[in-house]
Design a protein around this nucleic acid. Structure first.
Lengths: 229, 229
DNA sequence: TGTACATCAGTGAACGCGCGTTCACTGATGTAC
DNA sequence: TGTACATCAGTGAACGCGCGTTCACTGATGTAC
C-alpha cells in the first residue's frame, strides 16, 4: 500500500470512470435508476426539495445524465410523475377486470381502492405534493388519468343506484366524492397526525379502514333501534 | 410639463421615498400587509413558489422589510402560518362555545367543521401545501394546533357512543378519522377535480356537503327495505 | 418656543451562494473494409 | 482477422442566473434643553 498511490485510487473503485461503460453494468439502466431515485425523493421530501446533484448522487450517476435523458430537471419530474400514474392506472385496470360483475359493485370498488392504496401508500402523498400546489403540466396529466378512474367510479355508482343497491335520493356526484374522501384522505393525514389519531400505516391498516368504511356506507354511524337488543 | 422633469417624477407618486414615512400611512401596517400578501400567495401558488422580491412588491414594500420584521423569508413563512392557525383556532373555539350541550353532538360537530371551512375554504389547501410536504417547524406547529381540535372531536365521539347516539361496535379513532375525511377532503380535491366531479366551491357547497354527510352518517348509503315503499 | 440630535421605519443596491444547464471531453463498443 | 473510425453512454467542471441576506443610507418624528 504505497503512500504515493493515494490519489483517486479509492474513487476509481466507487465512481464510474468517464467514457462508454462496459456492458456488465451492475445496477441496471441509468434512466431507470434516476426515475427510481426521483420517485423516492419526491415521496420523502417532495420533488421540489431535491436538487439535480442530490438526485444524481443518490442514483450513483453524474448530474449531466438528467439533461441527457430527460432534457432537464423539469423533464425528469414529468417522466417520474407519468410513470407513477401509469403504474396506478395499470393496477386499477387489472383490478377492474378481476372484479367482474358478480357481487356488490360498491364493495368491489372500495376493495379496489383499498388494495391499490395499500400496495402503494405513497400515491396520495405524491399526488398531494405534486398536484395540489401547482397549476400546469403535472396537474393536466393528473386530471387526464384521474378522469378515467372517476368515470369508472361514477358509472359503478349510477349502476348501483339503478339496481337498488344504493339509495336513489342522494346525489351521485356527492356519493363519488364521499367514496374518494373515505379512501384517500386517511393516507394523506396519517403521516402528519397518525400518532394523535392512534392510527398507523401498517399492513393491517388498509383492511381495518376498508371494514370500517363498508360499515359506514352500509348502515351509517348512528345507533339504531335494531342495534339495541 | 417640462421635458427635463421626466426623471423619477411618476415614480415618486407610486414608490415610497426612503426615510421614516409620514404618519398618515394609507395602506395599513407594513408588517400586516406582508402577512396578508404572503398568505394570499401561499394559497394561490404555495409559499415556496414566491420569492421575497415578489412578495414585497405585491405588498407595496421594499424587500428589506422581510428581514426587518421577520428576520428573513423563513420567519415570514412561520409568522404567516401561525396567524392562519390562530385564526382557525379562534373560529373553532367560538363555534364550540356557541354549540353548547343541547341537541346532537355529532351534528353540531359536523356543522362546526362545515362552517369553519366554508368561511375559509383555503384552509385545507394551505395546510396541505405547507404541512404535508415537509417535516420541521411548520408541521410541529400544526400538530400542536390540530391536536387540541382532535381531542375535542375525540371527546365528542366518545360521549356520543356512551349516550347511545353512535354505534358502540365501531372504533372511535376510526370514527374521528371518518368525520375528518368527509369534511376536509372535498375542499382539497375540488380545485383539482371539481369540474370532473361536477362540484364547485360556491357558497352553497358547504351546505350541500353537510347535508349529504349527515345523511351518510345517519343511515349510510345503501338502500334499505324501509326505503322501498 | 426654537434647536440639535437620537431614534426609528423604511429603502434598494451589492453580495455571495446554490442551483440547473451547457459542453468539451472520455473511452468502450459497433462497424466497414 | 486486424484496423481505423464513427457512435454512443456517460463525466464533471464552468457558467450564469436568481435567490435571500446584508447594510449603508434616508428623512420624518420624538425628545431634551
Amino acid at each position: 500500500m504505497p503512500a504515493n498511490r493515494n490519489l483517486s485510487d479509492d474513487d476509481d473503485a466507487v465512481r464510474r470512470r468517464p467514457g462508454r461503460p462496459a456492458g456488465d453494468d451492475g445496477g441496471g439502466d441509468v434512466r431507470e435508476r434516476l426515475l427510481d431515485t426521483a420517485t423516492r425523493l419526491a415521496i420523502e421530501r417532495g420533488f421540489d426539495a431535491a436538487g439535480i446533484r442530490e438526485i444524481a448522487e443518490r442514483a450513483g450517476v453524474s448530474s449531466g445524465m438528467i439533461a441527457y435523458y430527460f432534457g432537464g430537471r423539469r423533464g425528469l419530474q414529468e417522466a417520474m410523475f407519468d410513470r407513477a400514474l401509469d403504474r396506478l392506472r395499470a393496477r386499477v385496470a387489472e383490478a377492474v377486470t378481476r372484479v367482474g360483475s358478480p357481487g356488490d359493485p360498491i364493495e368491489a370498488l372500495m376493495r379496489l381502492h383499498a388494495s391499490a392504496l395499500t400496495a402503494d401508500p405513497w400515491i396520495p402523498q405524491l399526488l398531494a405534493r405534486e398536484v395540489l400546489p401547482r397549476e400546469g403540466s403535472l396537474r393536466d396529466r393528473f386530471q387526464q388519468h384521474a378522469g378515467e378512474v372517476l368515470d369508472l367510479i361514477r358509472r359503478a355508482v349510477e349502476e348501483a343506484i339503478e339496481r337498488g343497491v344504493l339509495r336513489s335520493d342522494l346525489d351521485p356526484a356527492m356519493c363519488v366524492l364521499t367514496l374518494g374522501s373515505l379512501s384517500a384522505f386517511p393516507f394523506l393525514i396519517a403521516p402528519v397526525l397518525g400518532d394523535r389519531l392512534e392510527i398507523a400505516l401498517d399492513e393491517g391498516f388498509g383492511e381495518r379502514l376498508l371494514a370500517h368504511n363498508l360499515e359506514l356506507i352500509g348502515r351509517g354511524l348512528r345507533a339504531r333501534e335494531e342495534d339495541l337488543r
